[in-house]
């Protein structure tokens, strides 16, 4: 049985650890502290916790002010509100002056489930990725989340970390390492490379196992830092595999798939298929039902692999014909 671990649960624990180690760590929330797990920190360090109520714009602005005076604020709410409701505050008050604010948003993606489209962030990566000075991280499991959060506390500059409501299967050891802007290359494949983030990493690893049994050589990359993107890892995959499939719990517009497309189309054009939400809003349902409905599954990844491999082979045939 795969061990399951909630990225937000890890967040709650790591905040305590950080709070003990560094008096400059402060935590802010917008009335969702029990859901985001910042309530633990609030209980332990009440004087360093600020609940601004249901006001996300104020959440980001207050965090910016605290950072300006030397504090290391962790600001938390749901991903859709952190990035959508307060986008311009993140832009003006945090990113423009390069304030040392860590936005750790929970309830990313459609696996929020029953609350439906209003609470499901399928645009947050795009919204954060477009901001200069911003670092964007989506951990693939609880332990990677812990490592990323610890690292973010010691990294100077704005960071956006997207966590989830649901528990994820554990992929990495508890003491796993994390480096901003460095992809985790699980395997190198000559037929295709899967580049994913968040929950889709574990599904990509499963898809790769199936595909290998079919005789394919499959690379898998966990691109947990969407920005700055590890373009070397992407270009290596493009050169070695000649075909790429990306997978993310986010719109296919503006997220990981777009970031990968930008890099390969300018430097090493190869067939690409993006798995993600196809320009639609989410809806209510259980997380597993929604993943199935929107095509964020192991089988969808496998179908995408067959598709890009066909494109690759057609392309090679065309080249032979034209020679």
């Amino acid at each position: 049985m795969t061990k399951m671990l909630g990225t937000r649960d890890v967040y709650g624990d790591v905040l305590i650890e950080l709070g003990v180690a560094n008096r400059d760590i402060v935590v802010l929330d917008a009335d969702l502290s029990s859901s985001t797990r910042t309530a633990k920190f609030a209980k332990r360090f009440p004087e360093r916790f600020f609940n601004v109520g249901v006001s996300e714009q104020d959440l980001m602005g207050t965090s910016a002010g605290l950072a300006s005076a030397g504090k290391i604020p962790f600001a938390s709410t749901f991903a859709v509100f952190a990035t959508g409701r307060a986008w311009e505050q993140v832009r003006q008050s945090i990113c423009l002056p390069k304030m040392n604010v860590k936005i750790v948003a929970t309830h990313g993606g459609i696996t929020v489930g029953e609350d439906g489209a209003s609470h499901q962030s399928t645009e947050d990566i795009a919204l954060m990725r477009v901001l200069p000075n911003m670092t964007v991280i989506i951990p693939a499991d609880g332990y990677e989340a812990g490592a990323a959060i610890r690292l973010a506390a010691n990294f100077r500059g704005p960071v956006y970390i997207r966590l989830s409501r649901d528990k994820f299967p554990v992929i990495y050891p508890e003491n796993c390492e994390f480096e901003i802007g460095k992809a985790k290359v699980h395997s190198i494949g000559e037929d295709v490379t899967l580049i994913s983030c968040g929950l889709m990493v574990h599904l990509s690893l499963e898809a790769a196992d199936d595909l290998r049994r079919e005789g394919l050589s499959v690379g898998v990359i966990n691109m947990s830092t969407i920005k700055p993107l590890d373009s070397n890892a992407v270009l290596n995959a493009a050169r070695v595999s000649g075909a790429i499939v990306t997978a993310e719990e986010h719109s296919v517009i503006g997220g990981l798939g777009s970031a990968v497309a930008e890099v390969i189309s300018e430097n090493e054009p190869v067939p690409l298929k993006r798995i993600g939400i196809n320009d639609r809003f989410g809806m209510s349902g259980r997380a597993t039902e929604l993943l199935e409905y929107f095509g964020l599954t192991k089988n969808a990844i496998k179908e995408a692999v067959y598709h890009v491999m066909k494109l690759k082979s057609d392309k090679r045939q065309d080249l032979r014909l034209s020679n």
């Binding site: 600020f50 602005g61 207050t62 910016a64 002010g65 604020p73 003006q92």
Partner: peptide, 21 residues
């Protein structure tokens, strides 16, 4: 002290500065 220009954002920032002090 902080970036302003997009209106309405300075009071939150000022609160943060004051809380930090």
């Amino acid at each position: 002290e902080v970036c302003t220009g997009s209106l309405g954002q300075g009071l939150s920032q000022a609160n943060g500065l004051a809380l930090s002090a």
